[in-house]
Design a protein around this nucleic acid. Structure first.
Lengths: 239, 239
DNA sequence: ATTTTCCGTTGATCCAAGTCAAGTATCCCA
DNA sequence: TGGGATACTTGACTTGGATCAACGGAAAAT
């Protein structure tokens, strides 16, 4: 059960380099970051960081998946899911402020930990890295705004319809595809209860959505699109 | 009715310098920014920028107030209210991406417009400015996350209770204070209808909240706080 | 002063979504 | 292979919040 801690093997460097944040930076700044970094393997369902605690490391998810959740007054909600390869809790690292979300592994995950102070030091040194951080943060900001609009402007059924279309696209665009995670978490991400998600799926049956376990088939693409009314200013998470 | 456009008078420099974003940067970078900048006076209820359009200027609100709203499928919601002196739509400027929100003056407002390309140019040149942008963006990001948690984890009455406590604090902490804007917009900010806001206020009467027009009096501070269960990870917008 | 307009409140009703409870399916593991 | 979790679904019910319509009051306009 106990995670194994080791210094970063150089074989991981290329993977990390692929992340936007580190792609363009100078080689020696990159190595300065990597020197202080660790890699750890975590089992599923481990709480990596806890809401409210101070942030000491920038995390880079190499393999596996991580759920970012927040809670208040006994309620809990899933804010986002992190997939490889990408960083998380960059904003807390930068501001040296407490985490606003807890992070929990969903499956066995391999995660690189870069000391926050190193990130800040290299930031001051390397223009290109600074620029990348700004771009990344602006991107994160815009993503949350989109998700906020989704929440405030749409009903749960509309959110699900748009989610399915986005997921379909990510899966390659075919009529049939699989959900990327279990329904209870999908419900939480979409801001509803599992029971309601079931009913929302059923409600979308009228627009040609067929569900079999985690397998989704969109039988009438146009009909669903007409219902969903996707909008790049909400649903396109690449800009 | 027509806004008057003029190059930035130097008398405005000190005001803008006060904004975190510009406070620490080198004098000549600051002046490089100001040289290309304009100041305009706008009447109330003018749409300054429109959701979906490309972003050409970073805006700095000098006096007045601006509402940031988003809409979809005929519905509209208020995402935030900007108060002087602060910038808005920084993320769109940085990413050179379309606005995700429209901006509309609420009252007569004086606004500085800094060409986005100048911001990006000075950014590359001035470490300190780059650092300030990162800090600002991280702050914005964390603000939206907090607001997202507020929305997903609380009922409308709980959101109102916490809003009142925040507003009370901002107004100096006395038991009596004024709402900073009209109720219909407050409703939209809190993600509910005006009718429901009325009822939420009435519901908070049981916890010692008295309402007279825009004047709020918190008669039993402890009782309201017990109900609101404020949490710095949601309600403290300074970290 | 009187009309107009707009904001806020209230009541009645409706709809979406959460809750509770039970039942089914599936997967894991002994 | 047979429990025993656990996830998912379904139904009945409750609740929160939206909608619609009407009304009161204050400010602006005539």
């Amino acid at each position: 059960m106990c995670p194994v801690r080791l210094t970063m093997p150089e074989s991981d460097y290329p993977d990390i380099r692929e992340v936007h944040l580190f792609a363009e930076m100078a080689e020696d700044s990159f190595e300065a970051l990597m020197r202080g970094a660790y890699v750890q393997n975590f089992p599923p369902q481990i709480e990596l960081i806890t809401e409210g605690e101070p942030s000491d490391f920038l995390h880079v998810l190499l393999t596996g998946s991580v759920d970012l959740v927040s809670s208040w007054n006994g309620r809990e909600t899933s804010m986002a899911t992190v997939r490889p390869i990408s960083t998380f809790i960059l904003a807390a690292t930068i501001r040296d402020a407490p985490y606003l979300m807890s992070a929990r592994t969903l499956e066995k995950s391999r995660i690189a930990l870069i000391p926050s102070q190193d990130v800040r030091a290299v930031f001051a040194d390397d223009h290109v890295f600074a620029r990348a951080i700004v771009t990344e943060l602006a991107q994160c900001y815009r993503s949350v705004i989109k998700s906020q609009k989704d929440l405030k402007l749409r009903t749960s059924r509309e959110r699900l319809a748009n989610y399915l279309l986005r997921q379909q696209r990510r899966a390659g665009g075919a009529a049939g595809f699989d959900l990327e995670f279990e329904k209870r978490r999908l419900a939480s991400v979409l801001g509803m209860t599992p029971e309601n998600l079931s009913r929302a799926f059923k409600g979308l049956g009228a627009y040609g959505v067929a569900v079999d376990g985690t397998r989704i088939t969109i039988e009438d693409q146009q009909d669903l699109e007409r219902f969903a009314k996707s909008d790049p200013l909400i649903d396109d998470h690449t800009t």
